[in-house]
Amino acid sequence: MNQYDCLTDDSSLASAIFVPSYCGLDLGRYLWDYNASFRDSLSLDLVKWLARQPEWKRMFGRDHFFVAGRIAWDFRRQIDNDNGWGSVLMSLPESMNMTMLTIESNSWSNEFAIPYPTHFHPSSDSEVLQWQDRIRKQKRKYLFSFAGAPRPVLQDSIRGQIIDQCLASGRLCKLLDCESGPNKCDNPVEVLKVFMDSIFCLQPPGDSYTRRSTFDSIVAGCIPVFFHPGSAYAQYLWYLPKKYNKYSVFIPAYKVKNGSISINETLLQVCEDRMMDMREEVIKLIPKIIYADPRSKLKTTEDAFDIAVKRVLERVEKVRTEIKEGKDPGIGFAEGNSWKLKMSEAGIEEDWDHFF
């Protein structure tokens, strides 16, 4: 943010105000073995301080935004006692007037998902083009791959079945086991090598709906295969195409769970022409989902940071216009939407509410 071109030291001239609060780092210290008051203390201090500032009173915080480096679920504790998970940051009245950017959103209308950071931070447009050209020419020896570990304690997890189907597919599938032995999944070279060698990359939910692996696979030109609409389609509305079947394959998780579908057979049915079209769509997405080296700036394309700031400014300007027109800016700003409504706003017509 400090490298952004359009900064001003005069907050009265600012179109929007960035709140540099590291909420994820704060909460991460107290998620386990601490009571709720510990987890909430800095969140309460933050909003009280913000509400006292002259900048706040201009739009009562609706021109403020911040970034939280954890999933949104961690900031909306459902149970108001020590047994509830996370903090109450996003449930506070002041926070309802701000926009939160995070790696995974809930269905609230003031939360927006932005891409997980990958290991690719280009410093020029030419680096992006060279990388796209390289993966476009990449020979791929596996039909599909999965990098991850099972989640046996999660009742609805399909990772066990995915691993079983991968192993049963022989040379068609490559498994990067993140559970046994040295964890190769922490090595970006190992992960990218597997994804660059694969046509499709399986992206089931883990501890939450989304995973960084989705963006690693896009960087590698590997077509993502999703099993839950909350893993991408209902999340990255600013970044991914509305027509999700242009760049990905969707296999309902419950069909994997009950054994009524074969991942292997499903992916083998994708014809060569469609597969090539999907890969090209994935390759086109790369500039939009990466974060360029902050010491430089891409000149001919917008990266994930540029898109996020642009969309926040558009959102604030919409509120500013509503105020000038005498409308209530609070209507729709922080609504507890259903996922169905959120996806319909993204142009997705399928009724997937039951997945949530």
Results as ranks from 00 to 15, higher is better:
Ile158Tyr: 12
Arg159Met: 03
Asp133Leu: 00
Ser107Trp: 00
Trp56Asn: 01
Phe112Thr: 09
Asp80Leu: 15
Leu50Ile: 06
Gln138Gly: 05
Phe146Trp: 15
Lys141Thr: 13
Ser123Tyr: 13
Trp108Ser: 13
Gln165Lys: 09
Met100Phe: 05
Gly69Cys: 12
Gln161Arg: 14
Ile135Arg: 07
His121Pro: 01
Pro54Cys: 09
Asp74Trp: 02
Glu55Val: 09
Asp45His: 06
Met90Trp: 13
Ile114Trp: 03
Val47Trp: 01
Phe65His: 03
Trp131Phe: 02
Ser124His: 13
Phe75Leu: 03
Leu42Cys: 13
Met59Ala: 15
Gln138Ser: 08
Met90Phe: 15
Arg52Tyr: 02
Val128Phe: 03
Asn81Ala: 10
Gln130Tyr: 04
Ser105Glu: 11
Asn81His: 09
Leu42Ala: 15
Ala147Gln: 05
Ile163Cys: 07
Gln155Asp: 14
Val128Thr: 04
Asp133Gln: 11
Trp56Glu: 02
Asn110Asp: 07
Phe120Ser: 11
Gly84Leu: 05
Met96Tyr: 12
Leu50Ala: 08
Val128Ile: 15
Phe75His: 08
Gln155Cys: 11
Ile71Leu: 05
Asp133His: 07
Met100His: 01
Val67Gly: 04
Val88Tyr: 06
Trp131Tyr: 09
Asp45Val: 02
Met98Asp: 07
Leu46Asn: 02
Leu89Thr: 01
Gln130Gly: 06
Trp131Glu: 04
Ala72Ser: 10
Leu143Asn: 06
Glu127Ser: 07
Glu111Thr: 02
Ala72Arg: 00
Ala68Asn: 01
Met100Gly: 00
His64Glu: 00
Gly69Gln: 09
Gly86Thr: 03
Val153Met: 10
Gln161Ser: 13
Leu129Thr: 14
Gln132Glu: 09
Glu55Arg: 08
Asn110Gln: 08
Ile114Ala: 04
Trp56Val: 03
Gln78Asp: 14
Leu101Glu: 01
Ile162Gln: 06
Val67Ser: 09
Gly160Phe: 00
His121Ser: 11
